[in-house]
Nucleic acid binder design. Structure first.
Lengths: 245, 245
DNA sequence: CCCTGTGAATATTTTCACAGCA
DNA sequence: TGCTGTGAAAATATTCACAGGG
């Protein structure tokens, strides 16, 4: 470990120069809560679509798939946006959460690697509707460069640095094969990207201050397989199968 | 909450009939550890590919992107597979983890919803190489039914129940639009599926004993956006922007 | 009353630090 | 000696349970 200390949320505590460490300015929301805010946001949008204007913590918790104590605790980190005895105004809470997450503004995003998955990501509608705008698609395969996809022309990878700077991109999506991921990551970071969503099955190493989140299909399946195996052992021939220990 | 109690790992504690609750039989591995085992497994495969036969916890931790204390603690739940003063035998440890996860056997999987994403999932190579075999592709769109993809013919959704039973499928992948997800989920569960990987942006409700994992692009992006916003506030015009508090 | 917001109690996860074995 | 395996401590996260405002 170096002398820079990681905070709870995996970001970096660099003792920000002119900042006052007052409780209000440094409203440190727990990472577990941050990860659930988008879920609440989506649930609130669903409620709005159903014409529901007010909801209790119980209603919203059900819609979000959590229990109401957790929901209330999570919301308490943002402030007091409910009314005791009544509940929450759906629109108002939705706006407050969107603002807290930072999706009241639009984030430009680049996608690198337009194979099967990159293709699907580029066409994903939820992107644009939720505060993100795909501004560039990049691929190193000359056969793909120049093709149009989701209203954009696929650029060659040489254009990466220029495109990131031109559009002031802070968030990059990597959907390349594992072997290319680290190099792409390095180039994105060098160009100014400070958040990366990685779909490549590789561990990325990045400097402090850069956030990486990883989405990995086969890891998710393996986690399910573990639980399946336990269920099978529990119900089937008890503790016998394959246990050579 | 009903009277069945959830265990730490989100599965169900049904007081398994004939099982002995001895420490060895009920090797309850913490969920956080279970989620990392596939990462270690992949790192070990990478080390093998590089011709490395032995590694220290430090080596493996670096390859997996965690710290060595965490790695050793995690591995300690599986047993003592290392050698003090030496390290771990890569092949041996790889096999032990694969067995613990349950990927020494092959799991049949169905994918429901063959749009952009389902298409990409069906073609995903990592599937077959990691203990999973796609045995059926299903879609409700007649225009897609009958088309061939990744060596399989797409079936109409009416065939769901038969296919699940025929192949004894325990794991289902949902890649339909949100509106269809719950119905598909219900049908999968009714046919015998007990683990679901959900790519649809919807909260699924399932009976006790069924595990659901969710993968959601826009949630991941929003989590990154939150941290981006914090970084921007920290470095930019300090704590002023949009903070009307 | 009803339902939010929150301290306090529990549970889980991570990290430390070192005993103990090859 | 060097590195694993693990109790104990610290940090996080979840749940309980109830004070308090509308």
């Amino acid at each position: 470990m170096t002398s820079t200390r990681s905070t709870r949320d995996g970001a970096v505590d660099q003792g920000v120069p002119g900042s006052i460490p007052s409780k209000a300015a440094d409203r440190g929301i727990p990472e577990a809560t941050v990860a659930r805010l988008p879920v609440y946001l989506r649930a609130l949008v669903t409620l709005t679509d159903q014409g529901i204007a007010t909801c209790s913590s119980e209603n919203l918790a059900t819609a979000a798939g959590v229990n109401s104590a957790k929901l209330r605790k999570d919301l308490s980190y943002l402030g007091s946006y409910g009314t005791r005895g009544v509940g929450y105004d759906v629109e108002y809470l939705r706006y407050q959460i969107a603002r807290e997450i930072g999706v009241t503004q639009d984030w430009p995003v680049v996608i690198v690697g337009i194979g099967n998955l990159g293709h699907a990501l580029a066409n994903y509608a939820g992107f644009s509707s939720r505060g993100f705008r795909v501004v560039a698609l990049l691929d190193s395969d000359p056969a793909r460069v120049g093709k149009e996809l989701a209203g954009l022309q696929i650029s060659g990878s040489a254009a990466l640095e220029d495109l990131v700077r031109e559009h002031d991109v802070a968030i990059g999506v990597i959907a390349t094969p594992a072997a290319a991921a680290q190099e792409v990551c390095d180039r994105l970071v060098a160009s100014g990207v400070t958040s990366i969503l990685n779909f490549a099955p590789a561990v990325l190493s990045v400097p402090d201050g850069v956030d990486v989140r990883k989405v990995d299909l086969s890891i998710e399946l393996q986690i399910l397989a573990y639980h399946e195996q336990r269920k099978a052992l529990a119900f089937g021939s008890a503790a016998r199968l394959g246990d050579t220990g």
